[in-house]
Amino acid sequence: SANSENRSPGFWRSYVYKEVEVTTVDGREHRGWVHTVDPVSESVVLVHFEEDRQKTVEIVMGHAVKGITVVNEDMDSHREELDHMFVTADDTNFSK
């Protein structure tokens, strides 16, 4: 299971920008584009892009993750949006 051991940051980073399906311990499936995976809690942040551009973001808690499968490898289709989603003008002053 994805939760049984501590994975490397590189392992988690390989999912960023891809569309995945996360299965949780309650048997539910969570599908979305990976914005990030918190390297501390291993919680997965998924974004659902809707037709009318209304977006939903879902966080799946690391401890509840049973498995994660890539369903779309195309890392460029939502890269721009995923990168700019939570960054405000204020933040750019602090990064790098």
Binding site: T24, K55, V57, E58, I59, M61, E81
Partner: peptide, 11 residues
Amino acid sequence: IISCSVDIGTG
């Protein structure tokens, strides 16, 4: 908590 979701509008 297993998961939580938030509407973030037009983003």
